[in-house]
């Protein structure tokens, strides 16, 4: 595995913690985007789309991203650092657009959000591991 899973979703940490490199932060989803932006600025590229899922940004509190170091010899990146940064910027803009936040965060609902976030992340990780 040459990539890092950046996440605030405990289920992702639980599932991938032993087999993958996971950076888990107990922070809001917006902060995950900011941390990803910093990682891109210091030489990483994105592997999955930051606005994955049709769960709108103002609802799910979870965000899980795959990032790897920029390509070296005989490797390639789907998107460049600049393109990665642009995707993150657009995602941050999309988050800011959805100002009408939901207050309801019952335990069951949080678990549902975690499951869906995990599934979407797993879908990307599976493609990355192929």
């Amino acid at each position: 595995m040459d990539y890092t899973i950046l996440t605030n979703n405990p289920k992702v940490n639980e599932k991938f913690g032993d087999s993958h490199r996971v950076s888990f932060y107990d922070v809001p989803a917006e902060s995950i985007l900011s941390i990803a932006a910093d990682m891109i600025d210091s030489g990483c590229v994105l592997l999955n789309h930051p606005l994955y899922g049709s769960v709108k940004p103002n609802e799910t509190p979870y965000k899980s991203l795959l990032l790897k170091k920029k390509a070296g010899t005989y490797t390639w990146d789907a998107v460049s650092s600049d393109e990665s940064r642009e995707l993150i910027n657009k995602a941050i803009t999309a988050y800011n657009k959805f100002t009408h936040k939901k207050e309801d965060t019952s335990h069951d609902l949080l678990l549902d959000y975690q499951v869906v976030d995990l599934s979407l992340l797993a879908s990307a990780a599976e493609a990355a591991d192929e």
Binding site: L47, N48, H49, Y52, V79, L120, S123, A127
Partner: peptide
């Protein structure tokens, strides 16, 4: 409409 960027490309 996959989530993995290489798939999109």
């Amino acid at each position: 409409e996959n989530v993995y960027l290489a798939d999109k490309e």
